[in-house]
Amino acid sequence: MLPFDFEYYRPETLKEAVERYQFLEHQGKQPTYFSGGTELITLGRINLAYADAVIDMKEIAECNMKEFNGDHLVLGSALSLTQIEEANPFPLLTSVASEVADHTARGKITLGGNICAQIFYREAVLPFLLADSQVIIVGPEGIRNVQINEIFQEHLRLKKGELLVQTVTDRRFIGAPFFAKKRRQQWDTGYPLITVAALKIGQEIRLAISGLCPFPFRSEEMEVYINRWGQSLEARIDGALSVLPKSILDDVEGSADYRIFVLRNLLMDALQALG
């Protein structure tokens, strides 16, 4: 039961969406982009999200794209995670996405929504960080194409009024060996305690993590240690753990110490799996 009212728009083009956003803002309104919309609906109910105008992106063709364009996989931000899983164009993404929320909810949760989410796990971003994907962003200043690793710093650093249209991923990374594992507080339900995703490009292992800090990240510092092939597994992992970000989560899902214990074992599994 949302206690506030909002205007609802369903533009069919990116231009329309962006203009609508600007127009509403101009009017002093608080507009929001709405993809799966699950955040506004569930957080709005408990006063943790608010909007008085909603711009639903699901009718925009670009945001629903799901195809290979030459050597690049283009995925629209309004695709639901279930649509992506069923089509399975990017196995690592399928593997990570299929652990988010639950199957039915993933029919509503979208790729763009998860990447831009306020709820800080944003697990679906991990594969893109590993694959050096590009993101297509549109805003008042037009369209831009950016390296995700540049613009995703803890969260997607969009300017006001901008929206994520697509991710573009090089085919080279799509077939690469990967490892993905989500560990929860207990059994198979719930937010991540730690989610680790890893991709092996040639002899280089890449590593991205959600659930350890209040943001997902890929750490090149950790990768340096992880890729010291001459050393023992333990030494490589110890090295990686010595350069963790500072803000380790300590909450009802698990304490900071325990998260590190879990991470250590997951890294072990990742390295063993990717040889």
């Binding site: 609906i41 569930t42 109910r45 039915t104 909810a105 509503k108």
Partner: peptide, 23 residues
Amino acid sequence: LNGDCGACTVNVDGWPMKSCLML
């Protein structure tokens, strides 16, 4: 009303949908 329990599930175009998560 939070997408967690599934008691509100309906089918939309043949797919399951938590009707509390949809406007």
